[in-house]
Design a binder for these strands. Structure first.
Lengths: 149, 149
DNA sequence: TATTGTTATACTCTATAACTATA
DNA sequence: TATAGTTATAGAGTATAACAATA
């Protein structure tokens, strides 16, 4: 006979909960570091993608950032009004607009990236280099498990 | 037709970005699993804490979930109106209200937990048991690095 | 007919200040 | 004076449907 209460995994051992709490902490730290550049995590991420070698369309950018296509419009509007990124129409398919960072956008991103890295360093300071590598690999497995990336 | 080259941005090696994307995926999956019980990740988390051995006050619950104390009120209002949790005033300090799950709350949580676990299983299915353990430890280090928990 | 970017809208989440009752 | 819970409110984030231009 088993009258003991069913063993119940506590919330603190729940992966989803820990990811949610870690996200709250890291995004808060990143936003504080990015504030001086007029950026937030989302606009910073869009700018980062626009600075990459293989630039993406708005649709692809939205998918990569887990945003709805409609959400990305105002973010790009803001970045474009500050001459940090440009919407470049594709001449193969004129519906598609490729995101490309301007020189000013790249310059700002270089500075913003340092600030973001510094802010994140506080959050991850307890982890050794090999632990961060391992965490990176595990998270990539989750974040892109359905993706071909 | 595939106009876009496979995106390989540096952002994909950013721990904060990966945590944010993983959170988006896991919370989406959890919310879909919890919907049938009239719960979301946040109300589920509050109910989970109310079911634990050492119950918390509203203030402590909010801190644990990285919520503002004001945000927790409506969540508890909802759970209490459905007779899933009770606000129990502390007789030592009558300002404090301890959160306690009712029998109905525990019963619902038992079912909801199974659904949440099933939904999360899809997200973490690529990870072996030892990888999940390692991820858990690493995330705990980040999520509670300033905490005494 | 389907897709890209866009607009509009509504809903949820987050952050802040101020209030009440207790200490 | 300080703290726990609460209220009100505004701003940020998220989700959905519909539209014009293009394929």
């Amino acid at each position: 006979m088993n009258h003991a209460p069913t063993p119940r995994p506590a919330l603190i051992d729940d992966l989803s909960f820990l990811i949610a709490r870690a996200r709250s902490i890291t995004s808060g730290a990143a936003n504080r570091g990015l504030d001086q550049f007029g950026l937030k995590v989302r606009s910073y991420s869009v700018l980062a993608l626009a600075c990459e070698e293989s630039t993406l369309t708005q649709r692809e950018t939205a998918a990569f950032l887990c945003l709805d296509p409609s959400q990305i419009v105002s973010i790009i509007d803001d970045l474009e009004s500050r001459d940090l990124v440009a919407r470049v129409p594709s001449h193969e398919d004129r519906r598609r607009k490729v995101l490309r960072a301007t020189e000013a956008g790249r310059a700002l991103f270089n500075e913003a990236q340092k600030a973001a890295a510094k802010a994140e360093e506080e959050v991850f300071s307890h982890l050794a280099a090999d632990e961060r590598e391992h965490l990176l690999a595990l998270l990539k497995n989750i974040a892109f498990r359905d993706s071909s990336i």
